[in-house]
Amino acid sequence: MKAILFDCDGTIADSFGVICDIMRRTFLAHGLDAPEDAATRDIIGLSLDTAIGRLHPGVDSLLLASLVTGYRTQFRAARAEPDFREALFPEMKGLIDRLSARDSLLLGMVTGKSRRGVAAICEAHDMTAAFSVVRTADDCPSKPHPAMVLECCEVLGVDAGETLVVGDSIYDVEMARAAGATAFGVAWGTHRPDMLIAAGAAAVAGTPAELDRLIESWHDGALTALPREARAALS
């Protein structure tokens, strides 16, 4: 039995626009200059307090707590709007469904989202049953700390050496490596493919179809060819 642990935002969910908008609203509501979208995109994947701390270095604990609460309040209000929807990247739902149906694989989610946020997006896209275990910012230290991966492995009864982490940021890759798992990056998210490779990703997929093929290679134990294949895809 092997396990695949997926990041959510930037990997499965195309939520960049929503996150950047909510972050701008939150900072402005506190009388602060709104961060540039590029800066916000760069911290997606981190737990909210860590992310905001990077966007506003030196923030004191009281203001940080207020910003975190404000962000969550703004997000809940946005989610309650009739036209709100966190879109998934094309083909990712189909890939998740195919993988979750395989007897030799267990799927999990490791994300900087809150439990509430994970529940909302999984329910909206009928993905709740696909993930046997979920670890969020409410459960574990922020990525790249390995706790999310290690706790998922313990729950699933799968060794980290038989586990693959799929994510779009260097934080996902560093988390996987710290836990002793393999990491695959995806090129449609937060960080560039060269950054993911430099952080230690065994491969970077340019499309969900390519990710599907790479997962098959990993599942079959063909790891030695993956770094060369990944680098060739970047040239």
Rank of each mutant, 00 (worst) to 15 (best):
C8T: 02
D14C: 10
S15H: 00
S15W: 01
R25Y: 06
H30P: 10
H30N: 14
G31K: 09
A38F: 00
A39N: 12
I43S: 05
T50H: 13
A51P: 10
I52C: 05
L55W: 04
G58D: 09
G58N: 01
A65N: 13
Q74L: 11
Q74V: 10
F75S: 07
R76Q: 14
R79P: 00
P82C: 13
P82G: 02
D83K: 11
D83W: 11
D83H: 12
E86Q: 15
F89T: 11
K93Y: 07
I96A: 04
D97G: 08
R98S: 14
D103S: 14
D103F: 01
L106P: 01
L107M: 06
M109T: 00
T111D: 10
R115D: 15
A119K: 05
A120D: 04
M127G: 00
M127V: 13
T128N: 05
R135H: 12
C140V: 14
P141G: 12
P144H: 07
P146G: 05
M148R: 00
C152Y: 02
E154N: 11
V158F: 08
V158E: 08
D159A: 15
T163F: 03
T163G: 00
L164H: 01
I170K: 01
Y171R: 05
D172H: 10
A176R: 06
G180E: 07
A181M: 00
A181P: 12
A181C: 08
T182E: 09
T182Q: 02
T182L: 03
A183G: 10
V186K: 02
A187L: 07
W188S: 04
W188Q: 08
T190H: 09
H191W: 03
M195N: 09
L196S: 00
I197R: 06
I197M: 15
A202W: 04
V204A: 07
A205R: 04
D220E: 13
T224Y: 01
A225I: 14
P227Y: 06
A232K: 12
